[in-house]
Nucleic acid binder design. Structure first.
Lengths: 148, 148
DNA sequence: CCGTACATGAGACAACGTCTCAGTAACGAA
DNA sequence: TTCGTTACTGAGACGTTGTCTCATGTACGG
């Protein structure tokens, strides 16, 4: 067996979850999880494919989905709707997306349910989930250029 | 000149805005705007293309974007991120998306800025905009099946 | 009525993701 | 340890959404 100890924590947790849930632990999955773990900035699926060239593209997508389902990876939709991925820390959270440098910060759910209550009452909707993305400029980018 | 009086209100407003802003009023734009106006449910760009077969696909996309920029049309990202379009009434609003029937209801911005204040303070972000989509089941779908 | 510049159409191209299908390998059982 | 089942994988086709180019067309001001 390879040097199991060199796995990033995220990759390690992922492997554990695979075992617990009866999925197979493959070298491919280790490689993908390891590549994801090494990321700090949001990345595209294609970038991840480039990082693990020995893994097929379809398989990278399949495992991205698996990582998402297990809560290890989250999908962020930029302002134009284009998707990025990012290792996730919190079960449910939202994103502050810097439109200047592309950085994404998480923030945990402020009490949105409170806000939605009147809306829900009026519409008769049964709310199952939501997505909130906030766009702007991060502190670093504000300091760097056009400091208005 | 075609029967100008038969234009839907949205199409009519669009034509006016074109004139005001110095864009050209073309039969193509009238056709696209008219097709959009006739829609009640969210639709895909390709569906719109099918509805105006004499208009090139690229041109349909260009005018969809123009309609969006002018606030006559809004883009909704479904749960999986796939885009739909819908004539829009309100300048700034959010969406209640029924995951069962696909219906989309608008709701105007509850005071999100209040909620975001602590987040903004902590992160140093300068907020420029946001997107909020709420997913669930509409009243009709709740009544129709699996009424829990 | 003419000229200019904006708008259009056709089709190539790009990004993102899914599907199929044959081959491979993980892992429980013997 | 070996074996068999079945999940997993790779390659590549395919589908969707959208942009770009570039030659042609046309709205509209002069």
């Amino acid at each position: 067996m390879a040097t199991t100890s060199s796995l990033h924590p995220l990759a390690d947790s992922f492997i554990n979850r695979l075992e617990v849930e009866g999925h197979r632990v493959t070298s491919t999955r280790r490689a993908v999880a390891q590549a994801v773990s090494g990321r700090t900035a949001p990345f595209t699926a294609e970038e991840l494919c480039d990082e693990v060239p020995r893994v097929g593209r379809a398989t990278v997508y399949r495992n991205i989905k698996l990582l998402q389902d297990m809560g290890f990876l989250c999908r962020v939709l930029l302002e134009d709707g284009s998707p990025r991925y990012q290792p996730s820390q919190h079960a449910h959270h939202h994103h502050l997306v810097c439109v200047s440098c592309g950085e994404v910060q998480d923030f945990v759910d402020c009490d949105l349910s409170e806000l939605l209550r009147p809306v829900v009452r009026e519409s008769g909707f049964e709310v199952a989930g939501h997505r909130l993305e906030v766009f702007g400029r991060c502190a670093r980018c504000r300091g760097r250029a056009s400091p208005n």
